[in-house]
Every structure is written in structure tokens, then in C-alpha cells.
Amino acid sequence: MSSTTAPSAYYIPHAARWPIVGSVGLFIFFYGFATWLNGAAFGKEMFFLGTAIVVFMMFGWFGQVARESESGTYNGQVDSSFRMCMMWFIFSEVMFFAAFFGALFYARSFSGPWLGGDGAGGAEMTNAILYQGHDYVWPSDGPAHIGGGFQQMGWFGLPLINTLLLLTSGLTCTFAHHAIREGKRKPFILWLGATVGLGFIFVCLQAYEYYHAYSALNLKMTSGIYGSTFFMLTGFHGFHVTMGAIILLVVMIRAMFSHFSADNHFAFEAAAWYWHFVDVVWLGLFIFVYLL
């Protein structure tokens, strides 16, 4: 909205109906998921019902916010609240990934060598008592070779192509930003489309990489600590890329319906921040999971 029509009072919405829908949806989702994992009746059904309710809630809630934004309900201060919220949400996501990176570093630098007999003060005793003769080398599936021998995922080839794809998509995303700031809708939509396209190609290639890992390399989630960290990190990253691409796709569709203007396009900016975040996480993955 332009600043001339911006309301001066902070917008306090009333009678929010979507949160309770979200709570019920998540409740059914989590309860169903746990039941499903236990192999008990109706778990799968509850899981999908809960997912559907949450998606329905997101449509409703985000739709409401989008309509309010387009009708000029928000002022600059409300806009700041949204920005801070998104910023710290991304920070919390960084910390979520930090837990898995921490697990990777700990296993590679500490517990792996200890299992191989390194260390002092008792750290080497697991090797001496349980796993004599086990030599630690990364990638490791541990002294018991859980999952049975595997080959490491190389960095050349698909991962490198994926890196280039994501970096390029960061660039197209920035071009889209420049376009909307100049009020050029058509290039904005086109650059967005390119970003979304690159994102989905990334996800497809990642899926192919998983297929390749399972079928040709015998590299599975069950392949010891290497398989665990590999699939956990790349899996959650891939999930985030999928989410980010869907968010950007929604932004693109909204842009086609004449949403956003040169000075009011925070939904796009939030999506772009998120996109750059998954980009940076990928660089971390590429270096620490694939390269080193």
C-alpha cells in the first residue's frame, strides 16, 4: 500500500478462527502419525486428514492476510512486525539444521575416532572392549557395518549441478525482486517462474540422487552414521526447498492476480529470504556432507 493511504493505528485483528483449525489439524496429524508409526488402526487416515486440515488452514489464514494486505489494512509498523517474525523464524530454522550439523561434526570428529580406538581417559575403551580391530574411516557405517557396505555419494555430478541450480535460482530470485521494485510485473512473474522452475528441478534431481543412492550405491538411511546424517540433512533440506518453491509459486500466482506493488510486496520478500536461507544451508551441505 502506498504511504498516503496507510492507516495510522496498529491493526489488531479480532475473532481469529484459523488458529483453532490449525491446532485441531496438527493434533490429528501428530496423533495419526504416531499411530501410523506404531502400525495401529486409522493412523494413516488420521495423518492424511490432519495434513488436509492444516493445508486448508494455511489457505484460509494466508488468504485472509493477503486480502487484508491488498486492501491497505496494514501500516508500516505492522509490516515491521511481519518482517521481524519472518527473520526470527528463519533463525529458528537455522538452529534446527544446526542440531543435525552438530551431530555430523560430533560423529566425525569425536565419537567416530573414539570408536576406532583414539582418545584417552576411557574414550578408547569402547573399542578395546566391544569393537577390537575396528578402524575408523569416514564415511563410516560403524563397527557393525549396519546396512552392509555402501559407496559414498560423490560431490561431482549431480550435487555440483544442484549447487549451480540453487545458486542460479538465488540470482533469478534477486532479478525478480529488482523487477517488482521497479513495478515491472511481467518480468517479475517470469523471473519468479524461473526460480520456481529451478527449485523443482533441484528437488527432482535430488529425488533421482536418492534413487541412485539406494539402487546403485547401496547407500540407505540405515547405512550407519554416514547414511543417517546424509539422508537426515539432505532430506530436511530437500523438504525445505520444496516448501520454499511452493511458497514462491503461491507468490507467483498472486502476482498474476495483480497482487503486490513496487512498495508493498513483503510476501515475496519473505519467500525470497527463505529461499536464500535454503540456499545457504545447501552450501553448508555441499561443503560438509559432499566435499569434505
Binding site: L37, A98, L115, G224
Partner: peptide, 27 residues
Amino acid sequence: PVFAGAVTMLLTDRFFGTSFFNAAGGG
């Protein structure tokens, strides 16, 4: 979020065969 990550690893160790907290698998 770190706590969420930790319990997620417990979940996958239990149900999806990962070895984060299993010394036999290098965890």
C-alpha cells in the same frame, strides 16, 4: 529447534533405522 532436532533423531533411530545414537552403526 535444537531440541526438536534431537527428538527427531530419536524418532528416526527408532522407526527408520538410522544410527545417530547407536555405537554399532558409528553413532
